[in-house]
């Protein structure tokens, strides 16, 4: 069979291949998923905003408390406040280093 002939016959065959979509509720189901996704995104947007808010509040509060407590000589269960502050500062830095980029990424994604 020649190429042109093949092309013509295949064209004719393919015209008989149209398959209608058999799922009448497809649009309804998909829109439900889309709405769910939109809702999730809205919630995420709110959560990201709250995360930034608490990060900034925590940062300032932590700085204020640290500088305030540094001036006292209080001990808690025999541990000096200075050591406790150092301990919380290390935790803060570790958390900041491991979580900050995630927060930035989430903020970028929501935009």
């Amino acid at each position: 069979m020649k190429v042109e002939e093949e092309d013509k016959i295949v064209g004719e065959l393919m015209q008989k291949s149209a398959r209608p979509m058999p799922f009448s509720d497809f649009e309804h189901k998909l829109m439900a998923q889309i709405n769910e996704e939109a809702l999730l995104r809205k919630r995420l947007k709110k959560d990201v905003k709250l995360s930034w808010f608490f990060l900034i509040i925590g940062l300032f509060l932590g700085m204020f408390l640290s500088s305030f407590l540094m001036q006292t000589n209080v001990t808690i269960f025999g541990i000096s406040v200075r050591s406790l502050i150092l301990f919380t500062q290390i935790i803060f830095v570790v958390l900041l280093l491991t979580q900050f980029d995630r927060l930035v990424e989430l903020t970028r994604n929501k935009e």
């Binding site: 149209a18 398959r19 209608p20 979509m21 497809f26 649009e27 998909l30 829109m31 889309i34 709405n35």
Partner: peptide, 17 residues
């Protein structure tokens, strides 16, 4: 979000085939 329905209606048959 509801306007996404436009894309579904326009492209679902093409995508399905």
């Amino acid at each position: 979000t509801d306007d996404f329905r436009y894309f579904i209606q326009k492209y679902k048959y093409l995508a399905f085939s």
